[in-house]
């Protein structure tokens, strides 16, 4: 019983990381109709900045996360303004190729700057131990991860549902031309949404550095998971991907524990079937 709760807890932690990283991808893909295979780059960079500041400069965990998040959000904002926006009207193939190109460049730069090896995160003392709640012992790091993730997600949902910025994004996802005609500056909205999405990815990358190891191959290795969350969760939504990320996190974690010899076979078979069953994501949008 305890084992099962621990496993479920690990699955939720993993799902939250997947969600934080992928939610921005869902919003920007839904908003701009851009197939962005390079989203993992921003998570990786967030992870690198966080880990490097902690390991080399001794910056505490939370400030390091915040700095990573802000820096990457700024980078995302700039890249959207300079490169991405020229490709919005282009074919899916062009967008795929462009974003693969971006992945390759980032992999190369990271490799040149920080070397080919993975960068393990040195957790602060207060996150190293175990915490016991109602007789169940859980690792402090994952507990903090779930707590912090929940707070961020709550803030994000509030923003999406209750603020003007969120309403504008929802309007533009629904009908871009209409949003423009009622005076929404979609060009600025795109840049801001892109910056926000990449910042969240960076946060997820830094927060999850102990779950998804930070190494140059990161954007290639994990992109399929981020895309799965978006494709299964549905484009342009922020709640569908949450369900999808939890389901994927759960399925993957359970497989690893109970069927290690099957590896990721089930997760890919599962995704394949889900996408055939619900091509527009598990949550039906009206």
């Amino acid at each position: 019983m305890t084992t099962i709760i621990t496993i479920l807890f690990f699955a939720v932690a993993y799902g939250m990381i997947l969600y934080l990283i992928s939610v921005g991808l869902s919003v920007t893909m839904g908003l701009m109709g851009f197939v962005n295979l390079a989203h993992g780059v921003f998570a990786m960079l967030g992870g690198y900045v966080t880990v490097m500041m902690m390991n080399r400069l001794g910056v505490p965990f939370l400030p390091a996360l915040a700095i990573g998040c802000v820096l990457v959000a700024m980078l995302g904002f700039v890249l959207e303004r300079t490169l991405y926006r020229h490709l919005y009207g282009r074919s899916e193939l062009d967008q795929v190729l462009f974003s693969i190109g971006l992945v390759l460049v980032s992999v190369a730069i990271v490799r040149i700057v920080w070397g080919p090896l993975a960068q393990p995160m040195q957790l602060p003392e207060y996150l190293k131990g175990q915490v016991s709640i109602a007789g169940i012992t859980l690792p402090a790091y994952r507990l903090a991860l779930v707590g912090f993730g929940t707070a961020v997600i709550a803030g994000l949902w509030f923003m999406f549902d209750r603020t003007l910025f969120g309403a504008r994004i929802r309007a533009a996802v629904d009908n871009r031309a209409m949003a423009q005609s009622i005076g929404i500056n979609t060009s600025r909205l795109f840049s801001l949404a892109f910056g926000l999405g990449t910042g969240l990815a960076a946060l997820g990358g830094g927060l999850g550095a102990d779950v998804l190891a930070i190494a140059p191959a990161y954007p290639l290795q994990y992109i399929v998971y981020f895309l799965i969350v978006v494709a299964v969760g549905g484009l342009g939504d922020i709640k569908g991907p949450f369900v999808a990320a939890l389901v994927i996190g759960l399925a993957d974690t359970l497989c690893r524990y109970f069927l290690p010899e099957a590896g990721s076979i089930f997760i890919f078979a599962f995704v394949f079937l889900v996408l055939l069953w619900r091509p527009n994501g598990i949550i039906e949008r009206r």
């Binding site: 895309l227 978006v230 484009l235």
Partner: peptide, 28 residues
């Protein structure tokens, strides 16, 4: 026959998932 009913991102993901599936099967 299964995948080509879809298009766009879904089709792209299905082609990826199918290849990853075959890879994992061969791996195991």
């Amino acid at each position: 026959a299964a995948m080509l009913r879809t298009k766009g991102l879904t089709l792209l993901m299905l082609t990826m998932a199918a290849a990853f599936l075959l890879y994992e099967i061969a791996n195991k």
